[in-house]
Nucleic acid binder design. Structure first.
Length: 813
RNA sequence: GCAGAUGUGGCGGAAUUGGUAGACGCACAGGACUUAAAAUCCUGCGAGGGUUAAACCUCGUGCCGGUUCGAUUCCGGCCAUCUGCACCA
């Protein structure tokens, strides 16, 4: 049958009937856990991005299986979350109904793609049999003190009526709807990811991840080493500041508190009370985007209070200013306008003194603000020390007097996990008037998400409106109590799903320890780099936390990480409905079949790079399929009708060399997710076979072996097509069950090779030598080549450089 | 502003540890087959010069410079585009 969607259907049916993709958990082969980031069923159809993520990664998994690994390759659905709820708000269709419908449609499409998933291991995060365990994990973290509640200024989106994580705030606007984010104080649940900041940073070294992603995480964690320094104040309070530049302590000319700081009230004198209150009031009304605008001029106000410099006794004014952030460091800074740009700008505006205490090391004139390290001046006994030495010395001296210490700060903040939303896993907590916060007993899990709820947003959690859900009895005292109305951030669901897959049907525990230790960590994780900061850091945290609680015994969830690039619209822009440049895969699948589409997206782009969609390439790929079909058909005829030659001559050697070269490079390339070059090598091989078949006398054995190998090599890349051609070759089993071929070094050497001859590094010509002779013989042939001799005669030769088997360069004056 | 990535023919993209730049494919041109077209097959295809035709010569991997017998690859300095993070003291 000529390749089309019909061939896909034929083989999908056969695969199913024969359980070809059944995972054998008892296999003795080495396990390989290959995972793609699971899909979010916000729409009913797989879009091009899904295809570009899943189809090539499936080819990788197939390749690994053929190489002899026991490949575990599951797929599931990240089904809770805002889009389904927003869709529901718009259309009135319940999130559960639309989500489940989308899941079944997407699953059907994934089957049509021909992906080698074992669906016995699937999961859906919105189902009670999954979120029961999400809640259970919450309880374990709660018991361990890693989940806690606190009042916190949160990012509030007025349009979505919800709190957003810092990661969901883009330039002060909501990631989803683009409206400005305001600050609001609410009691919120947090996970203590900051406890793991140092380990999350250190363990990045262990990971086979793209460097750029490690960098993103490093910046996200934002470790900075410095000192905490205590300033006494005239009002008797103490202000602790954090600084990375204790060497500039003598240059402090004022101290600044964040407007939200609790100290402000105590330090402010009556005289300045009104100014300060006005300022705080104004600052709190500013939205995040206004407050953080880069070009915003710094503002602040004097409190009337003074602080005492712990090192020289200087009395400096205390100000409040919104350029100081409450939630970083100590919420207070010592201002050194001479050596910090922000302080300089502020001091200049408010006419505060500027005192220079660091000079350039090489004695050059320094222009203020001078923010580099240098040599201390105007610093009493610390004069002439380098910044590096002074940092240590000053901190030591302060420590002796209990006025300071060395410390480390991280930008990473605790993970805010509560959402005032309906479509998520309910937080398993009960509030009792008598007993306070009471965790739901494990045997009462899951806390079911009620179906009948008014989920239109009005600033309150939708669950609060369901009396049935809210009213309960306290597990401790049996009295009347209320449930937590917030649901968990979907990132909580996705922070542990890779642990659930291998034991997805376990109804006794989230996952069995023995199984998870055997199957995890994920060996190869494939997904977009938009998750570099959030999902990937949360999952790492979760693995480490569960390890410390004794539920598993490894440190990192994803050993190797690969990011696919993004396919852009034909116009080179990101695909979006509003731009009208989207590409619908279904049309192409229907017209050409899934394999042509898969092969095109693998061949037309650098996988890690992506690029603009080009429709012409798909037609070309379809033609390649036809060429291979013709090749197989011709082969069957040639094999039947021509005379056999047992000779292994130069033609055969060349064919075998190309065959082995294709095996070698395809093996390396697929391993490295470089599908475009892998496919190029398969094309070279089919071209070589076609050429060889035009010969008068063919060596049938060589030809047959080579054709078989071509189809085997294509099997992971074009699975349906390869099965069809395999069958045409008269084979009975599935080509998927064949072994990936091995390279023959002897064949790879071929018969001859060309040694380039250069003159001053520029190619002149090549000398062809046999690969079966010694290096010395090769050199002799090159040296005695007429053209080489001529080059020597006609030039003033300085020397010859010979890299054995590689290149021969003649250096002339 | 900081960090990261990218820059190669008309196009997508290839080039081991520095060693024949442009694999493979698209597009294009010419040819074969055909009444014709499509499909298929064959040939050519970085730019410029040169030749009846070849041979051959010069230039060429964003720009400038360096290291080297030899640089798309290594180093220094720019430019452009993209993506993160953005008052983190």
């Amino acid at each position: 049958m000529e390749y089309s969607k019909k061939v896909d259907e034929k083989w999908q049916k056969k695969w199913k009937e024969n359980n070809v993709y059944k995972f054998d958990k008892n296999s003795k082969k080495e396990k390989l856990y290959c995972l793609e980031m699971f899909s979010y069923p916000s729409g009913a159809k797989l879009h091009l991005g899904h295809w570009f993520n899943y189809a090539p990664a499936d080819s990788f998994a197939r390749f690994k299986k053929m190489q002899g690994y026991n490949v575990f390759h599951p797929m599931g659905f990240d089904a809770f979350g805002l889009p389904a709820e927003n869709y529901a708000i718009k259309t009135g269709i319940h999130p559960e109904d639309s989500t489940l419908k989308n899941i079944s449609a997407m699953r059907k499409q994934l089957e049509e793609m021909g992906a080698s998933y074992d669906w016995d291991y699937t999961l859906e995060t919105c189902m009670p049999d999954y979120y029961k365990w999400t809640q259970w994990i919450f309880l374990q973290l709660y018991k361990a003190g890693l989940a806690y509640k606190k009042e916190a200024p949160v990012n509030w989106c007025d349009s979505c009526k919800t709190v957003l994580a810092n990661e969901q705030v883009i330039n002060g606007t909501c990631e989803r709807c683009g409206s400005e984010i305001k600050r609001k104080k609410l009691a919120q649940w947090f996970f203590k990811i900051t406890d793991y900041a140092e380990e999350l940073l250190q363990d990045l070294d262990k990971l086979d991840w793209p460097e750029s992603t490690k960098k993103v995480q490093t910046n996200w964690i934002g470790k900075s080493e410095g000192s905490e320094i205590i300033f006494e104040t005239t009002s008797g309070e103490k202000i602790t500041v954090f600084t990375t530049r204790p060497d500039t302590l003598n240059g402090v000319t004022y101290v600044v508190l964040a407007p939200e700081s609790k100290l402000v009230q105590k330090i402010t004198t009556d005289e300045y009370k009104k100014d300060v209150e006005d300022y705080i009031d104004k600052a709190s009304k500013l939205s995040e985007i206004e407050r953080l605008a880069v070009d915003k001029e710094k503002t602040g106000v004097f409190t009337g209070g003074y602080a005492i410099n712990p090192i020289n006794g200087d009395k400096v004014p205390i100000w409040i200013a919104d350029y100081v952030l409450e939630d970083y460091g100590t919420g207070a800074v010592m201002a050194v306008p001479a050596h910090d740009e922000r302080d300089y700008e502020f001091a200049s505006k408010y006419k505060l003194p500027i005192k220079e205490v660091v000079k350039s090391k090489n004695g050059e004139e320094t222009k203020l603000p001078f923010t580099e390290k240098g040599i201390l001046v105007n610093s009493g006994k610390y004069d002439n020390l380098t910044s590096e030495d002074a940092k240590i010395k000053i901190t030591e001296d302060l420590q002796k007097e209990g006025k300071g210490k060395k410390t480390i700060n991280y930008r990473l903040k605790d993970w805010l996990v509560s959402r005032q939303r309906y479509w998520g896993a309910p937080i398993p907590i009960i509030y009792c008037d008598k007993c306070g916060i009471v965790p739901v007993p494990e045997e009462d899990l899951p806390v079911l998400l009620p179906y009948d709820v008014e989920f239109k947003p009005d600033g309150e959690s939708p669950l609060k409106k369901s009396k049935e859900f809210m009213n309960c009895t306290c597990p401790k005292c049996g009295g009347k109590a209320k449930r937590e109305a917030d649901t968990l951030d979907t990132f909580v669901c996705s922070s542990w799903y890779y642990l659930r897959y291998p034991d997805a049907k376990n109804d006794k525990e989230a996952f069995n320890k023995e199984i998870v230790d055997k199957m995890d960590p994920v060996d190869v994780y494939v997904g977009g780099k938009e998750h570099a900061a959030m999902h990937l850091i949360y999952a790492r945290f979760m693995t480490k936390a569960l390890r410390d609680l004794g539920y598993l015994s490894f440190d990192e969830p994803f050993t190797r990480l690969v990011h696919q690039g993004m396919i852009l619209g034909p116009d080179g822009n990101k695909m979006s409905k509003s731009k009208g440049n989207t590409v619908a895969p279904e049309e192409y699948i229907d017209k050409y079949g899934s394999d042509v589409f898969r092969m095109y997206i693998m061949f037309g782009f650098d996988y890690k790079q992506g690029g603009p969609w080009d429709e012409k390439g798909i037609e070309a790929m379809s033609k390649y399929f036809t060429r291979v079909e013709n090749l197989v058909q011709n082969f069957n005829e040639v094999y039947k009708n021509t005379n056999d030659s047992e000779e292994i001559g130069s033609k055969e050697k060349e064919l075998l060399r190309i065959k082995s070269n294709s095996i070698k490079l395809m093996t390396e390339n697929i391993e490295d997710f470089r599908f475009n070059t892998a496919i190029a090598r398969s094309m070279e091989l089919s071209n070589a076979i076609s050429d060889y078949m035009k010969e008068e006398n063919v060596n049938k054995k060589v030809l047959k072996d080579t054709v078989d190998i071509l189809i085997i090599l294509l099997a992971p890349l074009a699975p349906h097509f390869a099965e069809e051609e395999w069958e045409k070759l008269g084979k009975t089993g599935f080509v998927y069950n064949e072994n990936w071929p091995k390279v023959s070094q002897k064949e790879l050497a071929g018969g001859t090779k060309d040694i380039p001859i250069q003159l001053n590094g520029k190619l002149k010509f090549c000398v062809t030598v046999s690969t079966e002779i010694s290096e010395q013989e090769m050199l002799d042939i090159i040296k005695n080549d007429e053209r080489v001799i001529k080059l020597h005669e006609n030039n003033n030769v300085v020397k010859d450089i010979y890299v054995p088997g590689r290149i021969y360069n003649i250096v002339v004056k």
